[in-house]
Design a protein around this nucleic acid. Structure first.
Lengths: 198, 198
DNA sequence: CCGTACATAACAAACGTTTGGCATGTACGC
DNA sequence: GCGTACATGCCAAACGTTTGTTATGTACGG
C-alpha cells in the first residue's frame, strides 16, 4: 500500500543486531527491552515498533542463530562425504571470536528454551534440521566407503553430541581449547569414527 | 550459642530443595525469591533469613549441583578402567527423571555462568574436576590395555564433550533418546574410542 | 529478657507494555 | 500542482507489575 520511507527490513535488522549484541554480552538473563534500546541508541518504542514484544525478540534471535550457523562464512566443503562432515563440525565450533559469540548465545538460549513450550518445540526442530544436514554428509561418506555402514541417524547424533559438548567446554575454557586444539579433537574423533566396525 | 528450636541446617536444606524445584521447572530465568517462597509454602522473609540474597541462592544452587553430581545414587563401578569410565558417563546422563532434572538445571546454569565472572570461574573449576575424574579411569584403562595410549587429558576432553552434548540432545528430545538409546550411544562411542590407534 | 525464627509489609528500582503525539513520507481527488 | 488524507517511523512518557531488598512486628525456647 504505502512503501516505507525507511527500509523496514533494514531497520528491523538493526534491531536484531542490537539484540545480538546484548545477548553476546549479558546472556538471556540480561536481555531487556531497555538494554536493546540502549545498545541501539534509541527508545524502547522503536524496539516494540519492529517486534511486538520480548517474546518475539527472543524467537527472532533464535531464528537468526540457526540461519547464521547454516550460512556461516563457511570454509567451502573441499569434498563431499567425510571432508564435508568435518567442515560442518568446524563451522559449528567457536574457532573465531564471532563464532564464539554465536555459540555463547546458543548455549545461553537453552535455559529459556527448556522452560518455554513454544521455544522448546522450535529448538527441537532446529536440532533435527542440523542432524539432517550432518546425516547427508555421513551417508555420502558411507557411499564413498569412508565410514562404516552403521545407522547414519545414530552417527549424526553422535557427531552432534561431540560437537556441542566441545562447544560448551571451549566456551568455559578458551585458553585450554584454542582453535587448533579444537580442530585436532575433531580430527581425533573422526578418526575414531572411521575405524568403527559395522 | 544456638538455642535452635528448629534445626537450622535442616531448614536451610528445605529452602535448597525449593530452589531446586523452581529451577527444574522454570530454569534460572524463573528463579525469584517469591517463586522459591511459594514453592516452600512460606514467605520471602524465611528465604532471606537463610540466604542473604539471590546471588547466594544461585551460588548455593550451583554448589548443590556439583555435590549431587558427585554423590549421585551411582551405579557402582563394576570394575576399574573402561568399565568405570562407562559408569561415570552413565552417571552423568539423564537416564532417570531425577537425573534429567539435574541436567536441566545444569544446562540452564550455563547462561548465568557465562555472564558472571565469579560463577564462570567456579564453573570452569567444576569441569576441570570432572575431567580429572574421567582421566583417572582412562589412565587405569590404558594400563589395562583397554584403551590405546594417547594423551589421557585429550581423551577426557573428548569423553566429556560427547557426554555433555548427548545430555543436551536428550533434554530436547527425550522421546528420541530414551535411556536405552543413550546407553547404546555411549557404548558405540566407547567402542570407537578403544579402536583408536596410538 | 534475649536471640532466633519467621510473617508481614513496605520500598525503590527495573521490568514489559501501552499510549499520545509529532514528525515525515506516499496516495490521490481536484 | 496542490491540499487533504492517511500510513509509517519514532520518541517521550507513563502505565501497572514484578523484582530484590530491607524494616518492622510477633512468637517462643533458653
Amino acid at each position: 500500500m504505502s512503501p516505507a520511507r525507511t527500509d523496514h527490513d533494514s531497520r528491523r535488522q538493526d534491531v536484531s543486531e542490537a539484540v545480538w549484541q546484548v545477548l553476546a554480552e549479558h546472556g538471556f538473563g540480561g536481555l531487556t527491552m531497555r538494554a536493546v534500546a540502549a545498545a541501539l541508541g534509541s527508545s524502547t518504542g522503536l524496539v516494540t515498533h519492529y517486534f511486538a514484544g520480548k517474546r518475539e525478540l527472543i524467537a527472532h534471535a533464535l531464528d537468526i542463530l540457526e540461519e547464521r550457523t547454516a550460512h556461516r562464512p563457511r570454509r567451502a566443503a573441499p569434498a563431499p562425504g567425510l571432508a564435508a562432515l568435518r567442515t560442518q563440525m568446524l563451522n559449528i565450533l567457536p574457532l573465531t571470536p564471532a563464532a564464539a559469540a554465536m555459540n555463547r548465545i546458543w548455549v545461553g538460549s537453552w535455559d529459556v528454551a527448556l522452560s518455554d513450550p513454544d521455544l522448546f518445540a522450535a529448538q527441537s526442530l532446529r536440532y533435527e534440521r542440523i542432524r539432517a544436514g550432518l546425516r547427508t554428509s555421513i551417508e555420502e561418506a558411507q557411499q564413498l566407503g569412508e565410514i562404516p555402514d552403521v545407522d547414519p541417524g545414530r552417527l549424526a547424533t553422535m557427531v552432534l553430541s561431540f560437537t556441542h559438548g566441545l562447544v560448551v567446554q571451549a566456551l568455559f575454557d578458551p585458553e585450554r581449547l584454542p582453535a587448533a586444539t579444537q580442530t585436532r579433537l575433531v580430527d581425533d574423533f573422526l578418526a575414531a569414527l572411521t575405524r568403527e566396525t559395522a
